[in-house]
């Protein structure tokens, strides 16, 4: 039963990824712009262009190109970047950790801001405190992440420069890292000077990504909490003598978190999508920033690789959410 559900899940995931790859493959090929023309100087002959087209397989039909690409992917070969002339997979892997660290850091910030606000709002329901939280949520939600990014650059980069506004790490820093997960590794190696520098760079882009999500978490979790707090077992806990805060944390939070959790999964994929522009804005060397370069250069194999990796991450996030949902809900856990 569980195995069957898991298999169905895997097949759905594979179909989703295939679908994404087909759509992207077609779109970037019918969109205007020729990658070969862009990589050659203006005086290139038709023969040169034709030779390079053949080299990258662009002289074949789209269907043929797709199956050649797909058979490579199945063997772990994502092709060669046209603009950077390197293996797509190693390019993607070199940038992915930076984006993952940024996204997870942003998610943490969103949870740290949104969760407590929801709890306070539910505790103080009907008061001015709750109204204030609602207003703040509304403001955070109505401003998109890249505008938050600009505002933060102005505020904490220009007017009151306490954070770095560009890059991932200060250039003068000596980096002992063997992986691309700088932040994790700096903590692991107890190099907290590096941790500080990395967070100094990451904080503002992460905050820009986090604010709209924090508002969503705060709002939805508060609504769920208020709903759960009318249920009989919460009343019973109050009668037992537990304080309102205890009642929320012990009785209401876990059950109220279920609907919020699903939404966080969806919203987290949006947040990762947001890294594309935010990384550009803060010159943060992640996958999103690379994606924009790839699109500007019409670097078809690189775009395909990056999009597929993003799609894979989204699918995995959904899977993780479902698994956590089952874990938190004993009714599902026990069949």
């Amino acid at each position: 039963m569980i195995l069957q559900r898991f298999l169905i899940r895997l097949i759905t995931m594979a179909i989703t990824l295939l679908g994404v790859s087909v759509v992207v493959f077609v779109i970037i090929r019918v969109a205007p712009g020729d990658p070969i023309a862009m990589m050659l100087p203006p005086g290139a002959t038709d023969a040169d262009i034709a030779r390079l087209r053949a080299l990258y397989g662009l002289d074949r039909s789209i269907v043929e190109q797709y199956f050649i690409w797909l058979s490579g992917v199945v063997q772990g070969n994502f092709g060669t970047s046209i603009s950077l002339r390197q293996d797509v997979m190693s390019l993607v892997l070199s940038r992915l950790p930076a984006t993952l660290e940024l996204s997870i850091f942003a998610l943490l910030i969103a949870l740290i801001i949104g969760g407590p606000l929801a709890i306070v709002g539910a505790r103080e329901q009907g008061t001015a405190v709750e109204a204030g939280i609602d207003v703040a949520n509304g403001a955070a939600l109505s401003i998109p992440d890249f505008l938050w990014g600009l505002a933060l650059i102005l505020l904490f980069g220009v007017l009151w420069p306490v954070f770095h506004i560009s890059g991932r790490v200060s250039p003068r820093m000596d980096l002992p890292f063997v992986t691309q997960f700088y932040l994790f590794e700096s903590i692991f190696r107890l190099r907290f000077d590096l941790t500080r520098d990395l967070i100094g760079h990451m904080f503002m882009p992460a905050l820009a990504l986090a604010l709209p999500l924090a508002a969503i978490i705060s709002q939805l979790l508060k609504i769920s909490l208020k709903e759960v707090m009318t249920l009989d077992y919460v009343t019973l806990a109050r009668v037992k003598g537990f304080s309102e805060t205890k009642v929320i944390l012990r009785e209401a939070l876990k059950n109220a978190a279920l609907p919020t959790l699903t939404l966080i999964g969806v919203q987290f994929t949006f947040l990762i999508g947001g890294t594309v522009i935010i990384e550009r804005l803060f010159s943060y060397e992640g996958l999103g920033n690379m994606a924009i370069d790839a699109v500007i250069n019409r670097d078809l194999p690189l775009i395909q690789g990056i999009v597929l990796v993003f799609a894979l991450i989204f699918v995995l996030i959904n899977l993780a959410v479902d698994m956590m949902y089952a874990l938190l809900n004993p009714r599902l856990r026990h069949g």
């Binding site: 249920l231 009989d232 077992y233 009343t235 019973l236 806990a237 109050r238 009668v239 037992k240 003598g241 537990f242 304080s243 012990r250 009785e251 876990k254 059950n255 938190l328 809900n329 004993p330 009714r331």
Partner: peptide, 24 residues
């Protein structure tokens, strides 16, 4: 008040299906 009621009083609720926390 909460402490006093917690120590001296108790409730047998109407609906046993909703009066226990499903996740505890």
């Amino acid at each position: 008040r909460r402490r006093l009621i917690g120590a001296k009083a108790a409730l047998i609720p109407q609906d046993p299906l909703t009066a226990l926390n499903p996740s505890r």
